[in-house]
């Protein structure tokens, strides 16, 4: 039986949500609305800012780079994450605890610190190259920084924990006996995995992919640090344009296009999986 809340009670509970709603309305929704507004009114009303999306080769290139880096990051994160998440379902409680600890520690580390660590590691004169040269494995230092390889390495480092947690929360709900049952019915281990387990983990794969993808789209710190000006993704470009030219119409158009891209991916995701579960709401 539903215990519906009384009229005046309902108002009281709405009242509890009021401060948060007011804060978000004024300091979150309003600025976003302003971004949308400026993108079609500055410097003059019209869609000419958006025309740049197709006419300006620089913006086109930056969007292409952004999407390419994000797709590669997502693929690598989800494939590697799948291995870890799958292993997590097959080990003892203690063993899993150790794995979770690694993931949570990584997750909670400041992205700035992670970016810094990769700069230290991957520079030409950095720790990794020095070590490899010291061991005589390579003659010339590897170029790992200021290119897409470096950016992808750093972004995978951020995307992996996200992917693992999303995949694991899906796999945890799958009964391990399904694969046993498939084996019992004559399937090889590989067939049991491909025909039974993999399809069951599809929702996890989708939500992991999309989470990693949308977080990657707006990434600023890692691409800026590890791309070193050579690999420019959309967020860095917005920042640079904002700092140097202060062309509001331009900056807000780019921001809007980024926001729309994120919402678009999210909308696709909402059709496939329950968003509330993905964001833990």
């Amino acid at each position: 039986m539903s215990a519906a809340v009384l009229g005046p009670e309902r108002r009281a509970y709405l009242g509890l949500t009021a401060p948060a709603l007011a804060l978000l309305a004024i300091f979150f929704v309003l600025p976003l609305a302003q971004v949308l507004w400026l993108s079609v009114t500055d410097p003059r009303p019209g869609l000419q800012n958006y025309a740049e999306l197709v006419s300006n080769p620089l913006i086109l290139r930056i969007w292409t780079t952004t999407v390419r880096v994000c797709v590669v990051t997502t693929l690598v994160s989800v494939v590697l994450g799948y291995v870890v998440a799958y292993a997590m379902t097959r080990v003892s409680e203690r063993h899993r605890g150790a794995m979770v600890l690694c993931i949570v520690v990584t997750f909670s580390f400041s992205i700035l610190v992670r970016g810094f660590a990769f700069v230290v590691l991957l520079r030409s004169e950095g720790v990794l190259n020095s070590a490899l040269q010291g061991l005589g494995l390579i003659g010339e230092p590897l170029r790992l920084l200021r290119n897409e390889t470096g950016v992808v390495i750093g972004m995978v480092h951020y995307g992996l924990p996200v992917a693992i947690l999303a995949l694991f929360s899906n796999m945890r709900g799958i009964n391990a006996r399904y694969q046993d049952a498939a084996r019992g019915l004559g399937a090889s281990p590989f067939q049991a995995f491909r025909l039974v387990y993999l399809p069951l983990t599809k929702p996890g794969i989708i939500s992991a992919s999309i989470l990693v993808f949308i977080y990657s789209l707006g990434f600023f710190i890692i691409p800026t640090l590890l791309g070193g000006g050579r690999v420019v993704m959309i967020a860095e470009y917005i920042r640079v344009g904002f700092e140097e030219t202060l062309r509001w119409g331009h900056a807000t158009m780019l921001s809007t296009s980024l926001l729309v891209a994120v919402l678009l991916v999210l909308a696709i995701m909402a059709r496939v999986v329950d968003l509330k579960k993905v964001f833990g709401g």
Binding site: M1, A3, A4, V5, L6, G7
Partner: peptide
Amino acid sequence: LLAIAGFVT
């Protein structure tokens, strides 16, 4: 019962 208790208007 909930109406008597005041939880249902």
